[in-house]
Design a protein around this nucleic acid. Structure first.
Lengths: 137, 137
DNA sequence: ATATAAATTAGAATAACTCTAAACTAACTG
DNA sequence: CAGTTAGTTTAGAGTTATTCTAATTTATAT
């Protein structure tokens, strides 16, 4: 394509974010492929591998801004590291405790029934199912 | 009771752990009451408040040992802090993102149907549902 | 009582972020 | 376009939760 960034530029503008060199590179890696699960470190490594100099602080900033504006979703599966998912629609995950691999549970293979109401004075903000698996034994 | 530690001593011995002064104090706080949700910091504060000098490293060690031997369960709800639950039977949680409060979803108020099989070569190790709520608006 | 293996500890180290203040740049204005 | 400004990036310092290390202490077996 002649203008490989147009889609991503639009996406950032719609989110109210300036399409800077850094955000463009990150957004391209994140959104120009299928659904992805990443951490700050893996995304930083990828963007450097693509020869765009971006600081780790900017990766963190971008991940949070993208999440705030709904382009990403955070998935909490590990108490020592934050994972982000480019698929922001409601779905659930397998998490391999040995490898750290996060993957989608295909739609329809799981369902949560009879959701409880939020406790008094609270507002529901999300429901996450994590199916933990292990590689060995 | 005359021997307030007998129960807890047995519990530790059954888990293959020496009933040391520190582990006894921690186990008493954890198991001599109803179900509890704690973090290393909160448990450390409690044990010091009970006037037993225990280092934070020992609290971390004990939490992991207790978890390994099935006396505790880790609940992953926050990517920056580990929570532990004294109720090790299968149940799910509310997590208040504003206050950090973790609470049980009463049994029967939620259920996960049609569990997916683990991906090839993997073994299922747990299923966790976290219902996130917020305090404000 | 002793020996020994296990447990505890202070303090250093690490990992994953977050913050700060200075330098840079996108985008608006005339 | 040149100037202005507000938003963005960054290096490096700071923070927080947790783990590690090596020395000391303690529980238990003998």
């Amino acid at each position: 394509m002649d203008r490989p960034y147009t889609g991503v530029i639009e996406r950032l503008k719609n989110a109210g974010l300036r399409p800077t060199r850094q955000r463009l590179a990150l957004a391209k890696l994140l959104f120009d492929g299928g659904d992805r699960h990443i951490t700050a470190e893996t995304l930083h490594a990828e963007v450097l591998a693509a020869n765009v100099r971006v600081s780790l602080a900017t990766v963190y900033n971008a991940l949070h801004q993208f999440t705030r504006s709904g382009l990403l979703r955070e998935v909490v599966v590990d108490s020592s590291r934050a994972y982000f998912d480019t698929n922001t629609s409601g779905h659930h995950h397998f998490f391999d405790e040995d490898t750290g691999d996060l993957s989608d549970i295909p739609d329809g293979e799981i369902s949560v029934s009879s959701l409880p109401g939020a406790p008094a004075g609270k507002v529901l903000s999300g429901v996450e199912v994590v199916v933990r698996v292990r590689s060995q034994q």
